[in-house]
Design a protein around this nucleic acid. Structure first.
Length: 187
DNA sequence: TGTATGATCGCCT
DNA sequence: GGCGATCATACAG
């Protein structure tokens, strides 16, 4: 189990270190194979233009969920991560399904493991995450993030983030090398 | 009160 | 590779 201090660091560092960890929601989930960091000094970060009702959780303590609704139909899951006095988060973009695969297949209406959690909106659908899961603790109840087991050799590839219009080139997307469960390949 | 805009996905060509 | 779906949010007037 990761301590709160793990999340009390720069969001880009936390994003890097979350690759290889296991994310579970009510026991359903898998290994994080893709994550992106968003810091408060970053034009693509929701916290960049100050606090609003939607993003207020970004300004609260690290180690909580930030879920928001996008494109009129998708929920996206973040983990709040920042040093004291800042605001930032890690977008969880893809999982390798390992726990509760059948349930995820039902929710996604498909069997293909590679398509179950290979995108930020796919994985929230597979794990049954919606706006009600915003601002939840990672230590009480529904959510759990387990560190990679000791000795696991995690090779992480770095590249530009996906789907944003600002700060496109900043290399704050982190992927598990060789994974076939990414939302898209990394160059 | 009105309008533009998405940290996307899946289907179409 | 292109595009439509579909609506909460943010911000301007």
């Amino acid at each position: 189990m990761l301590s709160v201090d793990f999340y009390r660091r720069d969001a880009t560092e936390v994003a890097h270190d979350l690759v290889g960890a296991t994310l579970l929601c009510d026991g359903v989930g898998g290994v994080i194979v893709e994550a992106e960091g968003y810091r408060c000094d970053d034009p693509a970060c929701h916290a960049y233009r100050g606090m609003t009702p939607r993003n207020r959780v970004l300004f609260g303590p690290p180690g909580r969920t930030y879920v928001y609704f996008s494109y009129g139909m998708h929920n996206l899951l973040n983990v709040v991560a920042e040093p004291d006095g800042q605001a930032g988060a890690v977008l969880i973009r893809a999982l390798e399904p390992t726990h509760g695969v059948e349930l995820m297949q039902e929710r996604r209406c498909m069997d293909d493991l590679r398509n179950l959690c290979s995108g930020p909106a796919k994985l929230t659908q597979a794990l049954g995450i919606d706006l009600n899961d915003n601002d939840r603790s990672l230590w009480n109840g529904r959510f759990e993030i387990r560190a990679p087991s000791n000795g696991d050799d995690v090779e992480v590839l770095v590249g530009p983030r996906v789907g944003i219009s600002a700060a496109k080139e900043w290399p704050w997307r982190f992927c598990l090398s060789g994974s076939s469960y990414l939302s898209r390949p990394i160059r």
